[in-house]
Protein backbone atom coordinates (compact mmCIF):
# COMPACT_ATOMS: atom_id res chain seq x y z
CA UNK A 1 0.00 0.00 0.00
CA UNK A 2 1.78 3.08 -1.17
CA UNK A 3 1.39 6.49 -2.79
CA UNK A 4 3.50 7.86 -5.63
CA UNK A 5 3.58 11.49 -6.71
CA UNK A 6 4.38 12.71 -10.21
CA UNK A 7 6.12 16.10 -10.23
CA UNK A 8 7.46 18.50 -12.83
CA UNK A 9 10.78 19.87 -11.55
CA UNK A 10 9.40 23.27 -10.51
CA UNK A 11 10.53 24.82 -7.23
CA UNK A 12 7.13 24.35 -5.62
CA UNK A 13 7.15 20.65 -6.40
CA UNK A 14 10.60 20.34 -4.84
CA UNK A 15 9.55 22.30 -1.75
CA UNK A 16 6.24 20.51 -1.19
CA UNK A 17 7.67 17.02 -1.70
CA UNK A 18 10.97 17.49 0.17
CA UNK A 19 10.27 19.96 2.98
CA UNK A 20 9.68 18.44 6.43
CA UNK A 21 5.94 19.22 6.47
CA UNK A 22 4.92 16.63 3.86
CA UNK A 23 8.03 14.62 2.98
CA UNK A 24 6.88 11.50 4.83
CA UNK A 25 3.56 11.44 2.99
CA UNK A 26 4.86 10.25 -0.39
CA UNK A 27 6.44 6.84 -0.85
CA UNK A 28 8.06 7.77 -4.14
CA UNK A 29 8.35 10.81 -6.40
CA UNK A 30 8.62 10.49 -10.18
CA UNK A 31 9.93 13.32 -12.37
CA UNK A 32 7.25 13.44 -15.06
CA UNK A 33 9.55 13.70 -18.09
CA UNK A 34 11.35 10.52 -16.95
CA UNK A 35 8.20 8.49 -16.16
CA UNK A 36 8.65 5.10 -17.82
CA UNK A 37 6.72 1.95 -18.61
CA UNK A 38 6.03 -0.04 -15.44
CA UNK A 39 6.99 2.75 -13.01
CA UNK A 40 3.47 3.07 -11.60
CA UNK A 41 2.95 -0.69 -11.15
CA UNK A 42 2.27 -1.63 -7.56
CA UNK A 43 1.33 1.80 -6.23
CA UNK A 44 -2.13 1.89 -4.63
CA UNK A 45 -2.56 5.49 -5.68
CA UNK A 46 -0.72 7.99 -7.86
CA UNK A 47 -1.01 11.73 -7.33
CA UNK A 48 -0.20 14.06 -10.22
CA UNK A 49 0.96 17.31 -8.61
CA UNK A 50 -0.62 20.52 -9.89
CA UNK A 51 1.11 22.54 -12.63
CA UNK A 52 3.14 19.82 -14.29
CA UNK A 53 3.70 20.53 -18.00
CA UNK A 54 0.49 19.48 -19.83
CA UNK A 55 2.61 18.57 -22.85
CA UNK A 56 4.65 16.16 -20.74
CA UNK A 57 1.51 14.69 -19.15
CA UNK A 58 -0.07 14.15 -22.55
CA UNK A 59 3.13 12.42 -23.67
CA UNK A 60 2.82 10.06 -20.65
CA UNK A 61 -0.95 9.66 -21.04
CA UNK A 62 -0.73 6.01 -22.08
CA UNK A 63 0.98 5.13 -18.78
CA UNK A 64 -1.76 6.83 -16.76
CA UNK A 65 -4.55 5.17 -18.76
CA UNK A 66 -2.98 1.75 -18.37
CA UNK A 67 -2.55 2.34 -14.63
CA UNK A 68 -6.27 3.15 -14.37
CA UNK A 69 -7.33 0.17 -16.45
CA UNK A 70 -5.36 -2.10 -14.12
CA UNK A 71 -7.28 -0.82 -11.12
CA UNK A 72 -5.18 2.10 -9.96
CA UNK A 73 -6.39 5.28 -8.28
CA UNK A 74 -5.17 8.43 -10.04
CA UNK A 75 -5.49 11.78 -8.25
CA UNK A 76 -5.00 14.70 -10.63
CA UNK A 77 -4.57 18.18 -9.19
CA UNK A 78 -5.20 21.50 -10.92
CA UNK A 79 -3.73 23.38 -13.88
CA UNK A 80 -2.67 20.19 -15.64
CA UNK A 81 -5.13 20.49 -18.52
CA UNK A 82 -6.51 17.12 -17.43
CA UNK A 83 -9.39 17.61 -19.86
CA UNK A 84 -6.88 17.02 -22.67
CA UNK A 85 -5.63 13.65 -21.45
CA UNK A 86 -7.60 12.10 -18.55
CA UNK A 87 -10.73 9.97 -19.21
CA UNK A 88 -14.09 11.66 -18.83
CA UNK A 89 -12.68 15.03 -17.76
CA UNK A 90 -14.43 18.11 -19.13
CA UNK A 91 -13.42 21.62 -18.07
CA UNK A 92 -14.24 25.21 -18.92
CA UNK A 93 -12.11 28.28 -18.30
CA UNK A 94 -13.24 30.93 -15.83
CA UNK A 95 -11.12 33.99 -15.10
CA UNK A 96 -9.55 33.38 -11.70
CA UNK A 97 -10.65 35.73 -8.94
CA UNK A 98 -7.56 35.76 -6.73
CA UNK A 99 -9.04 38.58 -4.66
CA UNK A 100 -12.43 37.21 -3.54
CA UNK A 101 -11.38 37.20 0.12
CA UNK A 102 -10.71 40.96 0.25
CA UNK A 103 -14.45 41.58 0.61
CA UNK A 104 -15.30 40.23 4.02
CA UNK A 105 -18.46 38.20 4.08
CA UNK A 106 -18.36 37.46 0.36
CA UNK A 107 -19.69 34.04 -0.62
CA UNK A 108 -17.28 32.72 -3.27
CA UNK A 109 -19.87 30.04 -4.13
CA UNK A 110 -18.24 26.84 -2.88
CA UNK A 111 -20.65 24.07 -1.84
CA UNK A 112 -19.90 20.66 -0.34
CA UNK A 113 -21.97 18.38 -2.55
CA UNK A 114 -21.46 15.10 -0.70
CA UNK A 115 -20.36 15.81 2.88
CA UNK A 116 -20.46 12.12 3.82
CA UNK A 117 -17.82 11.20 1.26
CA UNK A 118 -14.69 9.60 2.79
CA UNK A 119 -12.48 12.50 1.66
CA UNK A 120 -14.32 14.85 4.04
CA UNK A 121 -13.33 12.72 7.00
CA UNK A 122 -9.86 14.20 6.36
CA UNK A 123 -10.26 17.33 4.22
CA UNK A 124 -11.89 20.13 6.20
CA UNK A 125 -14.75 21.80 4.35
CA UNK A 126 -13.28 25.27 4.80
CA UNK A 127 -9.91 24.24 3.38
CA UNK A 128 -11.37 23.99 -0.13
CA UNK A 129 -12.64 27.58 -0.11
CA UNK A 130 -10.11 29.64 -2.06
CA UNK A 131 -9.70 30.83 -5.62
CA UNK A 132 -10.17 28.20 -8.30
CA UNK A 133 -8.96 27.70 -11.85
CA UNK A 134 -11.97 26.95 -14.04
CA UNK A 135 -14.79 24.47 -13.60
CA UNK A 136 -14.96 20.72 -14.09
CA UNK A 137 -18.11 19.05 -15.44
CA UNK A 138 -18.36 15.58 -13.88
CA UNK A 139 -19.41 12.81 -16.27
CA UNK A 140 -22.13 10.24 -15.40
CA UNK A 141 -20.89 8.00 -12.59
CA UNK A 142 -18.69 10.65 -11.01
CA UNK A 143 -19.44 11.93 -7.50
CA UNK A 144 -19.17 15.73 -7.23
CA UNK A 145 -17.54 16.73 -3.93
CA UNK A 146 -17.02 20.49 -4.16
CA UNK A 147 -19.18 22.52 -6.53
CA UNK A 148 -19.76 26.18 -7.30
CA UNK A 149 -23.39 27.15 -6.74
CA UNK A 150 -25.36 27.97 -9.91
CA UNK A 151 -26.29 31.39 -8.56
CA UNK A 152 -22.59 32.09 -8.00
CA UNK A 153 -21.68 31.38 -11.60
CA UNK A 154 -21.15 27.64 -11.37
CA UNK A 155 -23.75 26.77 -13.98
CA UNK A 156 -25.63 23.48 -13.75
CA UNK A 157 -22.65 21.31 -12.83
CA UNK A 158 -19.56 23.46 -12.17
CA UNK A 159 -17.29 21.39 -9.94
CA UNK A 160 -13.88 21.88 -8.28
CA UNK A 161 -13.34 18.35 -6.96
CA UNK A 162 -14.90 15.04 -7.90
CA UNK A 163 -14.36 11.31 -7.42
CA UNK A 164 -14.99 9.00 -10.35
CA UNK A 165 -14.91 5.37 -9.25
CA UNK A 166 -15.33 2.50 -11.67
CA UNK A 167 -13.82 4.10 -14.76
CA UNK A 168 -11.46 2.54 -17.31
CA UNK A 169 -13.26 -0.78 -17.61
CA UNK A 170 -14.72 -0.60 -14.12
CA UNK A 171 -11.58 -1.04 -12.06
CA UNK A 172 -9.96 2.38 -12.02
CA UNK A 173 -10.66 5.42 -9.89
CA UNK A 174 -9.99 9.01 -10.93
CA UNK A 175 -10.08 11.91 -8.47
CA UNK A 176 -9.80 15.32 -10.14
CA UNK A 177 -9.61 18.88 -8.83
CA UNK A 178 -8.93 22.35 -10.22
CA UNK A 179 -7.21 23.37 -6.97
CA UNK A 180 -3.41 23.81 -7.16
CA UNK A 181 -2.03 23.34 -3.62
CA UNK A 182 1.54 22.26 -4.49
CA UNK A 183 2.10 25.66 -6.09
CA UNK A 184 0.75 27.69 -3.19
CA UNK A 185 2.16 25.55 -0.40
CA UNK A 186 5.53 25.35 -2.13
CA UNK A 187 5.52 29.14 -2.58
CA UNK A 188 4.96 29.74 1.16
CA UNK A 189 1.97 31.89 0.36
CA UNK A 190 -1.49 30.53 1.07
CA UNK A 191 -2.14 28.69 4.34
CA UNK A 192 -5.53 27.38 3.18
CA UNK A 193 -3.89 25.60 0.24
CA UNK A 194 -1.47 23.98 2.70
CA UNK A 195 -4.44 22.94 4.86
CA UNK A 196 -6.20 21.42 1.84
CA UNK A 197 -3.13 19.44 0.78
CA UNK A 198 -2.60 18.29 4.37
CA UNK A 199 -6.17 16.99 4.47
CA UNK A 200 -5.85 15.32 1.09
CA UNK A 201 -2.66 13.57 2.24
CA UNK A 202 -4.38 12.52 5.48
CA UNK A 203 -6.95 10.86 3.21
CA UNK A 204 -4.31 9.17 1.02
CA UNK A 205 -2.51 7.99 4.18
CA UNK A 206 -5.72 6.43 5.48
CA UNK A 207 -6.97 5.00 2.19
CA UNK A 208 -3.79 3.94 0.41
CA UNK A 209 -0.87 3.67 2.86
CA UNK A 210 -2.21 1.57 5.71
Amino acid sequence: MSLAVVEGGSYYHHETINAPRFRDRFDHAFYAPDLAEGDLDGFSAVMVADRVSPTVLRAKRRLFLRYLSEGGTLIVLGENQAHTWAPGVEWTFRPTNFWWWLDKGTDPGHRIANPDHEIFRHVSQRSVVWHFHGLLHPPPGAIPLVTIAPEMGGGPDGTLLYDHPGIAGGKGRLVVTTLDPFYHNGSHFMPMATAFLGGLLDWTDAAFRR
Partner: peptide, 27 residues
Protein backbone atom coordinates in the same frame (compact mmCIF):
# COMPACT_ATOMS: atom_id res chain seq x y z
CA UNK B 1 9.33 29.08 -27.19
CA UNK B 2 8.20 26.13 -25.08
CA UNK B 3 10.69 25.48 -22.27
CA UNK B 4 11.49 21.96 -23.42
CA UNK B 5 12.50 23.21 -26.87
CA UNK B 6 15.39 25.22 -25.39
CA UNK B 7 17.87 22.53 -26.42
CA UNK B 8 17.13 23.14 -30.09
CA UNK B 9 17.36 26.94 -29.93
CA UNK B 10 20.39 28.92 -31.13
CA UNK B 11 20.66 31.39 -28.27
CA UNK B 12 23.19 33.49 -30.18
CA UNK B 13 20.20 35.17 -31.85
CA UNK B 14 19.15 36.73 -28.52
CA UNK B 15 20.51 39.32 -26.13
CA UNK B 16 18.55 38.05 -23.14
CA UNK B 17 16.92 34.89 -21.83
CA UNK B 18 13.85 35.21 -19.56
CA UNK B 19 13.17 32.27 -17.23
CA UNK B 20 10.05 32.41 -15.06
CA UNK B 21 8.83 30.91 -11.83
CA UNK B 22 7.08 27.88 -13.32
CA UNK B 23 10.18 26.59 -15.11
CA UNK B 24 11.21 22.96 -14.70
CA UNK B 25 14.57 23.57 -13.02
CA UNK B 26 15.63 19.94 -13.37
CA UNK B 27 15.47 20.50 -17.11
Amino acid sequence: VPLYELGGVDLAAYRGLLIGLHADQRY
